[in-house]
C-alpha cells in the first residue's frame, strides 16, 4: 500500500527559522510529517497520524569535524534527525502539550548560530559584487541583454543585503535579551 507523500516549495529567510519551525510543526499536527529535504526551499512530506512535533534547526557548515558525535548528542537528547538542507540540520522531537523542547537553551548560542550563517554568506558578497560591476561595465555593448543582466545583478545584491540585515537585526534583538 502506498503512503501518501507530497512536496512543497517555500522560501524562509535565515532569520525566519522560527517561522519555518512553526510551519513544520503545524503540518505535523495535520498528519503531514517532514520526511526529506531537497534543494533550498523544497520540502518532502509523508502522511501519517497527527503528531505534536517540535521542529528545530541548526546551521553547521562543513567545517564541523565530528558530525557523527554531533548527531549522536542530539539523538541521546531525544531529537530525531530528519535531514539536511544546504547547511541547515533539521531535528524533531515529540512535544507534550505545554512543552517547548529547545536545542538552544540560551540566547548566546542562538546568536552564535546566526553568526555562523553570516560568515557563510559573507563569501557570496565578492561574487555578487563582481557580477554587478561586470554587468555595469559592459552595459553599453550589450543593449537589452545587458540591461536585463544588470537588473538581475542589482536584484540579487538587494536580496543579499536584505538577508544580511535581517540576520543582523535578529542578532541585535537576541543581544538585548541577555542580562549582564
Amino acid at each position: 500500500m502506498e503512503t501518501d507523500t507530497c512536496w512543497k516549495f517555500r522560501w524562509f529567510w535565515a532569520w525566519q527559522d522560527d517561522h519555518e519551525e512553526e510551519w513544520l510543526g503545524s503540518l505535523s499536527r495535520e498528519g503531514w510529517h517532514l520526511s526529506e529535504l531537497g534543494v533550498p526551499g523544497v520540502y518532502y512530506f509523508r502522511k501519517g497520524e497527527p503528531m505534536r512535533y517540535a521542529y528545530r534547526m541548526d546551521f553547521q557548515t562543513s567545517r564541523m569535524q565530528d558530525r557523527e558525535a554531533y548527531l549522536q548528542l542530539f539523538r541521546d537528547a531525544g531529537w530525531e534527525h530528519v535531514g539536511k538542507m544546504s547547511a541547515w540540520e533539521y531535528f524533531r522531537k515529540e512535544a507534550k502539550p505545554g512543552e517547548e523542547p529547545e536545542i538552544f537553551t540560551d540566547p548566546e548560542s542562538k546568536i552564535l548560530k546566526y553568526r555562523r550563517v553570516l560568515w557563510f554568506l559573507v563569501i557570496f558578497f565578492p561574487i555578487l559584487f563582481i557580477l554587478f560591476s561586470t554587468s555595469w561595465r559592459h552595459l553599453p555593448e550589450r543593449g537589452e541583454i545587458g540591461v536585463a543582466l544588470l537588473c538581475i545583478a542589482v536584484g540579487l545584491l538587494l536580496l543579499y543585503v536584505f538577508g544580511m540585515l535581517g540576520i543582523l537585526r535578529r542578532i541585535g534583538t537576541l543581544k538585548q535579551t541577555i542580562r549582564k
Binding site: Y70, L73, F74, I103
Partner: peptide
C-alpha cells in the same frame, strides 16, 4: 537550568 544539545555542542 537545562542545556539543549545545540547549546552544549557549541560550548
Amino acid at each position: 537550568v537545562t542545556i539543549g544539545p545545540g547549546t552544549l555542542y557549541g560550548m
